[in-house]
Design a protein around this nucleic acid. Structure first.
Length: 524
DNA sequence: CCTGTCTGCCC
DNA sequence: ATTCTGC
DNA sequence: GCAGAATGGGCAGACAGG
């Protein structure tokens, strides 16, 4: 049986990159996949979207910082022989990811060099691109799944659901195109983490209700970590949104789940840090990433679980049931104190009141959910819509970075300053919320203000003012003001304003302190 | 042993 | 995570 | 409406280097 060469993948991808048409990309990819021998499908499919390892395999553990030297050395010696196979590439990266301990970086780099020494220039650029997320062929997970469907003659929606269960494109390619009984592995069952359903963002209640029919459900939106809880008899595992096992970091959540009376289940919910009120996201983040002294951290930072869905119960998948039916089951099995606050609403005013209530208790916002919607794995559909609070300020640009990819020729990442006693202090960066036209305009404006040219970025005189929206002010260990804007985005360019008009450091600090107060404290 | 940097993964 | 753009 | 691209702050842990 033939071996698939890395050069084939690279050349297929350059054809895919060359067309803007999604259908054409899918067609080229499907055609290629149809020619790949079964035993190499998984590795080939992953490589086509720049993935070097199965999604549950861990990661190479060698990144941007180590790559430049490797690239320069190997480019000089490269032999142009086109002899690397996809299988050898996959093997090498499994080895690299397994290396740890003393001098691990050097040892990883040397395995990588051993691989790249046999690669052509194009192959080297491709493999390093895979490691830095720089492949840029306009071809990713979604289109690959469509290509797998096309190559097999199956419905794209069925293949997509399979991906939601298997969570790895290689396994999907195997199951769909590999023949045999591999397809049977694609069933929902406890202890195998899946891709969760996501919500579509919306500016406000009115806009959200434009796409959900009434009556609908509203739920508090909690600012924590999304979790899927798998129960099988006395076993309980907690996985994150991206299928990381976080059970060991959350012992009290495991205990709380013992109150759920089922033989088997997959539950969906959010874990937040909580005392008598919700604590900032950073607190729960500390909990889930903790491995040492978990118990000590658990005492300092209590967490709570709030469940909002059930995907599987007592041997039966529930994802094809309507939301209202799933919630009925959830209420039957879980104690009320583990359920996210929710309500059925019949009007926009109901929804607004519930949002106000959620915010006044210190939560992030609300989700509006269609009563009839099924649970769609790995989909962001209009059946779930999220509405979050945001704040806007005026900030002045004090620096800017040159963009990459389609933003190559523009200053695209703006350093934001607010006014302090002497000058301006930086409170974050943003590249979001800017249309191509604004990108051009801002580049022109900023180039007139350049004070220092640092190559990849410029320091500018503080004359360009932007209206900035953000969700929260975080405590920052990095910025001297101790504050950073979370999810900052540009609302508009304020050519009518000057640096004198921008928000002050004191104002920002006041807003931050407000966030940390409970409802009762805020009323004072 | 201490500190700084990198990485992966939460949002 | 959020936002914009092209299909 | 969907998919992809471009890039944010901050957390712990792993490793590098003195």
């Amino acid at each position: 049986m033939r071996s698939v060469m890395l050069s084939e993948v690279v050349s297929v991808l350059s054809r895919i990159r060359a067309t803007a048409s999604k259908n054409e990309k899918i067609f080229i990819a499907a055609d290629f996949l149809a020619s790949v021998p079964r035993d190499q499908l998984a590795d080939t499919a992953r490589l086509m979207i720049g993935q070097l390892l199965p999604s549950d395999f861990g990661s190479p553990g060698i990144g941007f910082a180590d790559l430049k030297a490797v690239r320069d050395i190997t480019l000089q010696k490269s032999l142009f022989s086109e002899r690397l196979t996809v299988a050898r590439v996959a093997e090498a990266f499994k080895t690299i990811s397994s290396i740890s301990g003393r001098k691990a970086r050097q040892r990883k780099a040397s395995v990588l060099r051993g691989l790249l020494i046999d690669a052509t220039r194009e192959e080297i650029e491709f493999l390093l691109g895979c490691m830095t997320g720089d492949v840029r062929a306009g071809f990713s997970e979604g289109l690959l799944i469509e290509a797998i469907a096309k190559a097999s003659g199956r419905e794209a929606s069925a293949v997509r659901e399979m991906f939601g269960i298997l969570t790895d494109v290689g396994r999907v390619a195997d199951a769909v195109l590999g023949g045999g009984d591999k397809g049977r592995a694609a069933v929902l069952e406890p202890m195998r983490p899946v891709k969760l359903m996501l919500a579509e963002p919306s500016m406000n209640i009115r806009q959200a209700l434009a796409s959900v029919s009434l009556p609908a459900a509203v739920e508090y939106k909690l600012d924590g970590i999304r979790v899927q809880i798998h129960i099988s008899r006395d076993q309980i595992r907690i996985f994150s949104r991206r299928q990381t096992d976080v059970t060991d970091a959350l012992p009290e959540i495991v205990e709380a789940v013992r109150a759920v009376s089922v033989s088997s289940a997959i539950l969906d919910g959010e874990v937040i840090a909580f005392t008598d009120k919700p604590l900032p996201f950073q607190e729960v983040m500390r909990r889930v990433t903790r491995e040492k002294d978990v118990m000590g951290e658990a005492e300092r930072t209590p967490v709570r679980l709030f469940l909002f869905d059930v995907l599987y119960l007592d041997g039966e998948p529930l994802i094809d049931l309507a939301y209202e039916e799933r919630i009925e089951r959830l209420k039957r099995i879980a104690p009320a104190e583990l359920l996210v606050p929710r309500k059925i609403i019949a009007s926009e005013a109901d929804a607004e009141r519930f949002l106000e209530k959620s915010l006044s208790e210190g939560h992030e916002g609300v989700l509006i959910k269609s009563l009839k919607g099924i649970y769609q794995l790995d989909r962001r559909s209009a059946d779930w819509i999220k509405v979050k609070e945001h704040i806007t300020i005026d900030a002045v640009v004090i620096g800017a970075e040159w963009g990459h990819g389609r933003r190559s020729n523009w200053l695209s990442n703006y350093h934001l300053g607010v006014k302090s006693r002497d000058g301006f202090v930086m409170v974050g960066k943003t590249f979001k919320g800017v249309s191509d036209a604004e990108l051009k305009r801002l580049t022109d404006l900023l180039l007139m203000e350049v004070e220092e040219d640092h190559g990849s970025w410029v320091k500018v005189r503080p004359n360009i003012v932007l209206e900035i929206a953000f969700n929260e002010i975080q405590r920052s260990p990095k910025y001297p003001s101790g504050m950073a804007l979370r999810f900052a985005r540009v609302v508009r360019i304020r050519e009518d304003k000057s640096a004198d008009d921008v928000t002050t450091e004191e104002e920002l600090r006041r807003i931050m302190q407000q966030q940390f107060l409970s409802k009762a404290e805020r009323m004072k």
